[in-house]
């Protein structure tokens, strides 16, 4: 089966800094793929370029066979790619329910049956239904992350990119998040997740890709990748 997302030779320069140096990566339909790498290795840049936040300096991105390289963020969202940013965010001045409502109003028409037909159903799913009447700006950090997930899901993506979704969460919140993310492939949502927490990645992902200085240095089954001397080398003295 052809991959849902096929990234080839993707490059990104910021002035003199090479954030991505020609990355090839294929995301298979229905999987939860992990992307790891040291700080500054280009993980967020990879997501930003795929989702149109930044224009690539080179390379192509195919989503379900369609070339989406360099499209605007809203067009990529409507094509079916959801994104939660590394910096948790919501529409702070608006109500929690209104946040989710807005997020569901701009997706493309049609598509498969929606597992969460209403904003309320989505809030139930992420466990925020009790907070629907609050303003997003007053949510505690953990709830803000969950709201971010609900917003991305409201666009009904078939591929969801999560950039450090568990950063800043406590253990209880993290395991709740793991529970949610694991259900996504069952709802027809392929997931690609960045995180530094290898325990979390082992729980979520059967496959890992490793970035270092903007290049992919490993890609394969999680256990194999984590035993790879090249990967251990990169993380020497790090958090592995």
């Amino acid at each position: 089966m052809s991959p849902i997302l096929a990234i080839s030779g993707l490059g990104k320069q910021f002035g003199g800094v090479t954030a991505l140096a020609g990355v090839d990566l294929a995301v298979e339909e229905g999987e939860i793929l992990g992307v790891v790498g040291p700080n500054g290795s280009g993980k967020t840049t990879l997501f930003n370029v795929v989702t149109g936040v930044h224009k690539p300096s080179g390379g192509t991105v195919l989503f379900r066979g369609r070339d989406i390289t360099g499209l605007a963020p809203h067009a990529i969202s409507r094509a079916g790619i959801g994104y939660t940013f590394q910096q948790a965010m919501a529409f702070a001045g608006l109500g929690v329910l209104e946040n989710v409502q807005i997020a569901g109003e701009h997706r493309r028409a049609g598509g498969a049956a929606n597992p969460w037909p209403t904003p309320q159903a989505l809030l139930d799913f992420v466990g925020l239904s009790a907070l629907g009447g609050e303003k997003a700006g007053v949510l505690p950090f953990g709830s803000l992350r969950l709201l971010g997930l609900a917003l991305a899901l409201a666009t009904r993506p078939s591929l969801l990119l999560l950039d450090e979704p568990a950063a800043g969460l406590n253990d209880r919140e993290t395991s709740a998040l793991v529970g949610l993310v694991r259900q996504l492939p069952g709802h027809g949502i392929t997931v690609c997740v960045i995180d530094h927490d290898m325990k979390l990645m082992q729980m979520l992902c059967r496959r890992l890709a490793v970035l270092d200085f903007g290049s992919k240095i490993a890609d394969g089954p999680t256990e194999k990748v984590l035993a790879d001397p090249k990967v251990l080398d990169v993380y020497l003295g790090g958090d592995l």
Binding site: V53, H74, M89, F91, L94, I102, A154
Partner: peptide
């Protein structure tokens, strides 16, 4: 209206709005 909500979303956070399919 939903149009008003869209405008408020842009007011609150353009980057997030764009990521949710809004043509800012």
């Amino acid at each position: 209206s939903s149009y008003g909500r869209t405008l408020r979303a842009i007011r609150e956070n353009e980057k997030l709005a764009a990521s949710l399919g809004i043509n800012v």
